[in-house]
């Protein structure tokens, strides 16, 4: 990409408005339609940006009770052109992971695709908080790889850099922009004790290690971590009726719930709390990297650490597991 640009707040807003609808985090940290550019907090908002792309509750179809097959109305993908302002690099990178789930032939999700195609991601660099760990994954708070445009707040506007050809084209529509040298990317925060990502194969090989059960004691499977995780994608399909109107819905679900894998007959392969904790950690740090070399199922946003009522720290846990596994491997060798 070319060098950076300097743009004013007003001209950015004007260009975004011209493009279409605008979304940004509201005061409650949820993604909402807005008319102006909100003042953002220093770090990521409470909710990940995935809410706009794969909402917790999405209609598949609806019909009236007793309707014939011809009257089943499929939900139409939302193709409103627009932009999302205030996307943080961790959340944007998480979308790349969701792309692998929802844009994978032959079963593309047209709703997700319509949002990805029509929404421009306007990133805003953040001031990392105490539980931000993007540095663990090799990027920083102003990373522009997964957004269309990355902005850095300045006293009199924004320093802007394009992250994609689409972003480049958009920046050309912002009036009054002046070329400015792009700042060097900032390194991301990571814990001082962190020594590197775990080996996915070693984690998997220790599927039956007693440490999972030990860690299970400190987890109550409340599932808050997955609810706020920008990369978690699991859902369920169910029908709901309300006053004679029936909806077929895709509803967010999470692997920590006891009924996630409970089958209709009552058999549940993941009955024990520790097995569900293990599933979550292995999925992120072993299964996804094994299936997609170079990717990890976590982008270091740290929401799970912020919100865990049991004060667990995912990274500390992963580190502790690997330390134990490595120590035992050394002892054997």
């Amino acid at each position: 990409m070319a060098d950076g640009m300097k743009i004013s707040r007003d001209s950015l807003l004007a260009a975004l408005r011209k493009r279409g609808a605008l979304w940004a985090p509201n005061d409650a940290g949820r993604w909402a339609a807005v008319d102006s550019l909100p003042e953002l907090g220093p770090i990521r908002p409470r909710r990940p940006v995935k809410d706009l792309f794969t909402p917790p509750r999405r209609e598949i179809a609806h019909w009236k009770a007793g309707a014939g097959p011809a009257e089943i109305e499929p939900a139409q993908p939302d193709e409103t052109p627009g932009s999302v302002f205030g996307v943080r690099p961790c959340d944007a990178r998480a979308l790349l992971l969701l792309d692998r789930a929802f844009l994978q032939p032959p079963h593309l999700d047209p709703h997700y695709q319509a949002r990805r195609d029509n929404l421009l991601l306007i990133g805003v660099a953040c001031q990392p908080g105490p539980n931000c760990y993007c540095g663990v994954f090799g990027f920083g708070p102003d990373d522009k790889d997964a957004v269309d445009v990355m902005l850095t707040l300045q006293a009199d506007g924004f320093a802007a850099q394009a992250g994609s050809p689409r972003g480049q084209a958009f920046l050309a529509t912002v009036s009054g922009g002046a070329a400015a040298p792009a700042a060097a990317p900032r390194p991301g925060p990571r814990p001082d004790w962190w020594t590197g990502l775990p080996d996915p194969k070693a984690l998997y090989a220790n599927f039956d290690h007693p440490i999972w059960r030990e860690l299970g004691t400190s987890c109550m499977n409340c599932g808050v971590c997955t609810q706020y995780c920008p990369t978690c994608q699991c859902f369920t399909v169910d029908d709901e009726s309300w006053k004679g109107e029936i909806q077929r819905l895709r509803i967010v679900d999470n692997c920590q719930r006891s009924d996630f894998t409970r089958m209709a007959g009552g058999h549940n392969p993941r009955q024990v709390a520790a097995s569900r904790l293990r599933q979550r950690m292995l999925h992120k740090f072993s299964y996804i990297p094994t299936q997609n070399p170079g990717l990890v199922g976590c982008t270091g946003c740290g929401r799970c650490v912020d919100l865990c009522p049991l004060d667990r720290n995912l990274f500390a846990d992963v580190f502790e597991i690997m330390k134990r596994i490595n120590q035992e491997a050394e002892r054997v060798a």
Partner: peptide, 19 residues
């Protein structure tokens, strides 16, 4: 293999076992 499934598409995450 019998496993609770919802989507059939490899998206809903439920039937994940190992990789």
């Amino acid at each position: 293999l019998e496993m609770k499934m919802k989507c059939g598409l490899g998206q809903c995450g439920r039937c994940n076992i190992g990789p």
